[in-house]
Amino acid sequence: MLMQFLASGFMLGSVYGLVALGFAAIYKATRVFNFAQGMLMATGAYLAVTGSVVLGLPLVGTIAFVVVAAGTLGVVIQWLLIRPLAGRPLLAMVMITIALSIILRALIVIIFGGGAQTLRLGLPEGSFVLGSVRISAIHATAAGVSWLCMALFMVFFRFSKAGLLMRATADSHEAAVLSGVNVNRINATAWALGTILAAIGGVFLGQLQVASVELENIGLLALPAVVIGGLQSIPGAIIGGLLVGLIEQLSSGYISPKARDIFVYVPLLIILLVRPWGLFGERELGRV
Protein backbone atom coordinates (compact mmCIF):
# COMPACT_ATOMS: atom_id res chain seq x y z
CA MET A 1 0.00 0.00 0.00
CA LEU A 2 2.81 2.32 0.89
CA MET A 3 4.12 2.41 -2.69
CA GLN A 4 0.60 3.11 -3.96
CA PHE A 5 0.20 6.06 -1.59
CA LEU A 6 3.64 7.38 -2.46
CA ALA A 7 2.93 7.17 -6.19
CA SER A 8 -0.43 8.92 -6.01
CA GLY A 9 1.03 11.45 -3.58
CA PHE A 10 3.81 12.19 -6.03
CA MET A 11 1.40 12.67 -8.92
CA LEU A 12 -1.03 14.90 -7.01
CA GLY A 13 1.93 16.70 -5.45
CA SER A 14 3.23 17.51 -8.93
CA VAL A 15 0.03 19.42 -9.67
CA TYR A 16 0.22 21.16 -6.27
CA GLY A 17 3.82 22.03 -7.06
CA LEU A 18 2.69 23.66 -10.29
CA VAL A 19 0.08 25.80 -8.51
CA ALA A 20 2.59 26.64 -5.75
CA LEU A 21 5.15 27.63 -8.38
CA GLY A 22 2.63 30.10 -9.78
CA PHE A 23 2.11 31.50 -6.30
CA ALA A 24 5.88 31.79 -5.76
CA ALA A 25 6.39 33.54 -9.12
CA ILE A 26 3.86 36.21 -8.15
CA TYR A 27 5.24 36.56 -4.62
CA LYS A 28 8.86 36.72 -5.71
CA ALA A 29 8.36 39.39 -8.36
CA THR A 30 5.67 41.53 -6.72
CA ARG A 31 5.80 40.65 -2.99
CA VAL A 32 2.06 40.07 -3.01
CA PHE A 33 0.91 37.12 -0.88
CA ASN A 34 -1.85 35.98 -3.19
CA PHE A 35 -4.72 34.41 -1.27
CA ALA A 36 -6.64 34.25 -4.55
CA GLN A 37 -4.31 31.57 -5.94
CA GLY A 38 -6.79 28.82 -4.97
CA MET A 39 -9.65 30.58 -6.72
CA LEU A 40 -7.48 31.25 -9.77
CA MET A 41 -6.95 27.52 -9.91
CA ALA A 42 -10.70 26.87 -9.73
CA THR A 43 -11.12 29.52 -12.43
CA GLY A 44 -8.80 27.45 -14.63
CA ALA A 45 -11.15 24.49 -14.34
CA TYR A 46 -14.10 26.68 -15.38
CA LEU A 47 -12.11 28.15 -18.27
CA ALA A 48 -11.63 24.56 -19.45
CA VAL A 49 -15.39 23.97 -19.11
CA THR A 50 -15.97 27.11 -21.17
CA GLY A 51 -13.52 26.03 -23.85
CA SER A 52 -14.59 22.40 -24.18
CA VAL A 53 -18.33 22.47 -23.33
CA VAL A 54 -19.52 26.00 -24.10
CA LEU A 55 -17.30 26.74 -27.12
CA GLY A 56 -16.97 23.10 -28.17
CA LEU A 57 -13.22 23.36 -28.79
CA PRO A 58 -11.05 20.26 -29.23
CA LEU A 59 -8.41 19.43 -26.57
CA VAL A 60 -5.61 21.56 -28.06
CA GLY A 61 -7.97 24.48 -28.63
CA THR A 62 -9.24 24.25 -25.05
CA ILE A 63 -5.70 24.29 -23.68
CA ALA A 64 -4.80 27.31 -25.82
CA PHE A 65 -8.00 29.05 -24.69
CA VAL A 66 -7.21 28.39 -21.00
CA VAL A 67 -3.64 29.68 -21.35
CA VAL A 68 -4.60 32.86 -23.21
CA ALA A 69 -7.61 33.62 -21.00
CA ALA A 70 -5.70 32.96 -17.75
CA GLY A 71 -2.75 35.06 -18.90
CA THR A 72 -5.07 37.92 -19.78
CA LEU A 73 -6.83 37.60 -16.43
CA GLY A 74 -3.48 37.81 -14.65
CA VAL A 75 -2.51 40.97 -16.53
CA VAL A 76 -5.90 42.56 -15.85
CA ILE A 77 -5.65 41.76 -12.12
CA GLN A 78 -2.20 43.32 -11.95
CA TRP A 79 -3.28 46.37 -13.93
CA LEU A 80 -6.58 47.07 -12.15
CA LEU A 81 -5.93 45.97 -8.58
CA ILE A 82 -2.27 45.47 -7.76
CA ARG A 83 -0.54 48.29 -9.63
CA PRO A 84 -2.62 51.15 -8.17
CA LEU A 85 -1.84 49.86 -4.68
CA ALA A 86 1.94 49.61 -5.17
CA GLY A 87 3.75 50.78 -2.07
CA ARG A 88 0.71 50.33 0.20
CA PRO A 89 1.00 48.27 3.38
CA LEU A 90 0.99 44.49 3.16
CA LEU A 91 -2.44 44.34 4.78
CA ALA A 92 -4.06 46.26 1.90
CA MET A 93 -2.53 43.85 -0.62
CA VAL A 94 -3.71 40.81 1.33
CA MET A 95 -7.24 42.21 1.61
CA ILE A 96 -7.26 42.86 -2.15
CA THR A 97 -6.40 39.25 -2.96
CA ILE A 98 -9.03 37.94 -0.52
CA ALA A 99 -11.64 40.24 -2.07
CA LEU A 100 -10.53 39.10 -5.53
CA SER A 101 -11.02 35.50 -4.54
CA ILE A 102 -14.56 36.16 -3.22
CA ILE A 103 -15.49 38.10 -6.38
CA LEU A 104 -14.19 35.35 -8.67
CA ARG A 105 -16.20 32.76 -6.71
CA ALA A 106 -19.37 34.85 -7.02
CA LEU A 107 -18.82 35.38 -10.76
CA ILE A 108 -18.36 31.65 -11.32
CA VAL A 109 -21.52 30.82 -9.35
CA ILE A 110 -23.51 33.44 -11.29
CA ILE A 111 -22.29 32.21 -14.68
CA PHE A 112 -22.16 28.44 -14.14
CA GLY A 113 -24.48 27.93 -11.17
CA GLY A 114 -23.44 26.62 -7.79
CA GLY A 115 -23.30 22.96 -8.74
CA ALA A 116 -20.25 21.07 -9.93
CA GLN A 117 -19.58 20.57 -13.63
CA THR A 118 -18.07 17.48 -15.12
CA LEU A 119 -14.99 18.18 -17.15
CA ARG A 120 -14.17 15.72 -19.93
CA LEU A 121 -11.32 16.88 -22.08
CA GLY A 122 -10.65 13.62 -23.86
CA LEU A 123 -7.40 12.98 -22.03
CA PRO A 124 -6.25 9.33 -21.97
CA GLU A 125 -8.34 7.27 -19.53
CA GLY A 126 -7.91 3.90 -17.89
CA SER A 127 -4.93 2.79 -15.86
CA PHE A 128 -1.79 0.72 -16.04
CA VAL A 129 0.28 -1.25 -13.55
CA LEU A 130 3.87 -0.39 -12.80
CA GLY A 131 5.47 -2.90 -10.43
CA SER A 132 3.10 -3.15 -7.49
CA VAL A 133 1.46 0.19 -8.22
CA ARG A 134 -1.66 0.90 -10.24
CA ILE A 135 -1.47 4.28 -11.96
CA SER A 136 -4.37 6.06 -13.64
CA ALA A 137 -3.55 7.54 -17.02
CA ILE A 138 -5.09 10.88 -16.09
CA HIS A 139 -2.94 11.16 -12.96
CA ALA A 140 0.15 10.28 -14.97
CA THR A 141 -0.74 12.86 -17.64
CA ALA A 142 -1.38 15.51 -14.98
CA ALA A 143 2.00 14.84 -13.38
CA GLY A 144 3.79 14.75 -16.72
CA VAL A 145 2.30 18.01 -17.96
CA SER A 146 2.94 19.66 -14.58
CA TRP A 147 6.61 18.73 -14.74
CA LEU A 148 6.81 19.93 -18.33
CA CYS A 149 5.32 23.32 -17.35
CA MET A 150 7.61 23.60 -14.33
CA ALA A 151 10.63 22.83 -16.52
CA LEU A 152 9.54 25.43 -19.08
CA PHE A 153 9.12 28.00 -16.33
CA MET A 154 12.57 27.23 -14.91
CA VAL A 155 14.17 27.62 -18.35
CA PHE A 156 12.33 30.92 -18.84
CA PHE A 157 13.30 32.16 -15.37
CA ARG A 158 16.97 31.14 -15.64
CA PHE A 159 17.84 31.81 -19.24
CA SER A 160 15.52 34.34 -20.91
CA LYS A 161 15.99 38.10 -20.82
CA ALA A 162 12.52 38.61 -19.32
CA GLY A 163 13.36 35.98 -16.69
CA LEU A 164 16.58 37.83 -15.84
CA LEU A 165 14.71 41.12 -15.45
CA MET A 166 12.14 39.33 -13.28
CA ARG A 167 14.87 37.98 -11.00
CA ALA A 168 16.46 41.45 -10.88
CA THR A 169 13.13 43.05 -9.90
CA ALA A 170 12.60 40.39 -7.24
CA ASP A 171 16.07 41.17 -5.89
CA SER A 172 15.70 44.94 -5.65
CA HIS A 173 12.76 46.88 -6.98
CA GLU A 174 14.57 50.22 -6.74
CA ALA A 175 17.77 48.99 -8.37
CA ALA A 176 15.66 47.55 -11.20
CA VAL A 177 13.94 50.90 -11.80
CA LEU A 178 17.34 52.63 -11.71
CA SER A 179 18.61 50.18 -14.33
CA GLY A 180 15.78 51.07 -16.71
CA VAL A 181 13.60 48.02 -16.06
CA ASN A 182 9.90 48.66 -16.68
CA VAL A 183 8.82 47.12 -13.40
CA ASN A 184 5.09 47.33 -14.22
CA ARG A 185 5.58 45.18 -17.28
CA ILE A 186 7.63 42.67 -15.30
CA ASN A 187 4.97 42.49 -12.60
CA ALA A 188 2.25 41.99 -15.21
CA THR A 189 4.28 39.15 -16.71
CA ALA A 190 4.65 37.55 -13.29
CA TRP A 191 0.89 37.74 -12.68
CA ALA A 192 0.17 36.33 -16.12
CA LEU A 193 2.52 33.39 -15.56
CA GLY A 194 1.32 32.76 -12.00
CA THR A 195 -2.30 32.73 -13.15
CA ILE A 196 -1.55 30.44 -16.12
CA LEU A 197 0.23 27.93 -13.87
CA ALA A 198 -2.67 27.98 -11.39
CA ALA A 199 -5.19 27.56 -14.23
CA ILE A 200 -3.36 24.57 -15.71
CA GLY A 201 -3.34 22.97 -12.26
CA GLY A 202 -7.09 23.69 -12.09
CA VAL A 203 -7.71 22.02 -15.44
CA PHE A 204 -6.18 18.78 -14.16
CA LEU A 205 -7.78 18.86 -10.72
CA GLY A 206 -11.13 19.62 -12.38
CA GLN A 207 -10.52 16.58 -14.55
CA LEU A 208 -9.48 14.34 -11.62
CA GLN A 209 -12.49 15.45 -9.59
CA VAL A 210 -15.13 17.83 -10.88
CA ALA A 211 -15.02 21.51 -11.77
CA SER A 212 -16.38 23.25 -8.70
CA VAL A 213 -15.68 26.39 -6.71
CA GLU A 214 -14.69 24.08 -3.86
CA LEU A 215 -11.48 23.36 -5.80
CA GLU A 216 -10.33 26.55 -4.13
CA ASN A 217 -9.63 24.60 -0.94
CA ILE A 218 -7.27 22.32 -2.82
CA GLY A 219 -5.66 25.27 -4.58
CA LEU A 220 -5.04 26.94 -1.25
CA LEU A 221 -2.77 23.99 -0.38
CA ALA A 222 -0.29 26.01 -2.45
CA LEU A 223 0.11 28.30 0.57
CA PRO A 224 1.48 25.68 3.00
CA ALA A 225 3.47 24.28 0.07
CA VAL A 226 5.34 27.52 -0.56
CA VAL A 227 5.74 28.38 3.10
CA ILE A 228 7.19 24.93 3.79
CA GLY A 229 9.43 25.10 0.73
CA GLY A 230 10.49 28.70 1.33
CA LEU A 231 8.66 31.75 0.00
CA GLN A 232 11.73 33.02 -1.80
CA SER A 233 12.66 29.74 -3.42
CA ILE A 234 11.30 28.61 -6.78
CA PRO A 235 12.53 24.99 -6.42
CA GLY A 236 11.28 25.15 -2.81
CA ALA A 237 7.73 25.78 -4.05
CA ILE A 238 7.84 22.69 -6.26
CA ILE A 239 9.27 20.50 -3.49
CA GLY A 240 6.76 21.96 -1.02
CA GLY A 241 3.97 21.00 -3.43
CA LEU A 242 5.31 17.45 -3.68
CA LEU A 243 5.54 17.17 0.11
CA VAL A 244 1.96 18.36 0.54
CA GLY A 245 0.79 15.76 -2.03
CA LEU A 246 2.66 12.97 -0.25
CA ILE A 247 1.46 14.01 3.20
CA GLU A 248 -2.11 14.20 1.93
CA GLN A 249 -2.11 10.72 0.41
CA LEU A 250 -0.29 9.09 3.33
CA SER A 251 -2.50 10.67 5.99
CA SER A 252 -5.76 9.96 4.19
CA GLY A 253 -4.57 6.46 3.35
CA TYR A 254 -3.44 5.44 6.80
CA ILE A 255 -5.58 7.61 9.08
CA SER A 256 -8.52 9.42 7.52
CA PRO A 257 -9.16 11.82 4.63
CA LYS A 258 -10.08 14.38 7.29
CA ALA A 259 -6.59 14.11 8.75
CA ARG A 260 -5.03 15.75 5.70
CA ASP A 261 -5.38 19.32 6.85
CA ILE A 262 -3.86 18.61 10.24
CA PHE A 263 -0.84 16.93 8.75
CA VAL A 264 -0.37 19.67 6.16
CA TYR A 265 -0.90 22.69 8.40
CA VAL A 266 0.94 21.43 11.49
CA PRO A 267 4.26 21.31 9.57
CA LEU A 268 3.39 24.82 8.33
CA LEU A 269 3.15 26.02 11.92
CA ILE A 270 6.35 24.26 12.91
CA ILE A 271 8.23 25.75 9.95
CA LEU A 272 6.94 29.23 10.77
CA LEU A 273 8.10 28.81 14.36
CA VAL A 274 11.55 27.36 13.84
CA ARG A 275 12.57 28.19 10.26
CA PRO A 276 10.39 31.00 8.95
CA TRP A 277 12.30 31.24 5.68
CA GLY A 278 11.28 27.66 4.79
CA LEU A 279 13.22 24.51 4.01
CA PHE A 280 14.86 25.89 0.89
CA GLY A 281 14.50 29.66 1.26
CA GLU A 282 17.33 31.90 2.29
CA ARG A 283 17.40 33.89 5.46
CA GLU A 284 17.01 37.54 4.41
CA LEU A 285 20.41 39.21 4.10
CA GLY A 286 19.00 42.46 5.34
CA ARG A 287 15.87 44.54 5.09
CA VAL A 288 14.77 45.07 1.53
Binding site: L164, R167, A168, D171, S172, E174, L178, S179, G180
Partner: peptide, 25 residues
Protein backbone atom coordinates in the same frame (compact mmCIF):
# COMPACT_ATOMS: atom_id res chain seq x y z
CA UNK B 1 22.98 56.07 -15.99
CA UNK B 2 22.72 55.79 -12.22
CA UNK B 3 25.19 54.73 -9.60
CA UNK B 4 22.98 55.02 -6.53
CA UNK B 5 24.01 55.64 -2.96
CA UNK B 6 24.51 52.37 -1.11
CA UNK B 7 25.42 50.70 -4.44
CA UNK B 8 22.16 48.71 -4.75
CA UNK B 9 23.55 45.85 -6.79
CA UNK B 10 21.33 42.82 -7.42
CA UNK B 11 22.69 40.72 -4.57
CA UNK B 12 21.37 37.35 -5.69
CA UNK B 13 22.44 37.73 -9.31
CA UNK B 14 25.95 37.06 -10.58
CA UNK B 15 28.29 39.85 -11.67
CA UNK B 16 27.64 38.98 -15.32
CA UNK B 17 23.85 39.00 -14.78
CA UNK B 18 24.02 42.38 -13.04
CA UNK B 19 25.79 43.80 -16.08
CA UNK B 20 23.28 42.15 -18.41
CA UNK B 21 20.42 43.85 -16.60
CA UNK B 22 22.22 47.17 -17.13
CA UNK B 23 22.71 46.38 -20.82
CA UNK B 24 19.07 45.32 -21.28
CA UNK B 25 18.07 48.85 -22.37
Amino acid sequence: GQVPEGRLVFKHLTVEENLQVGAAV
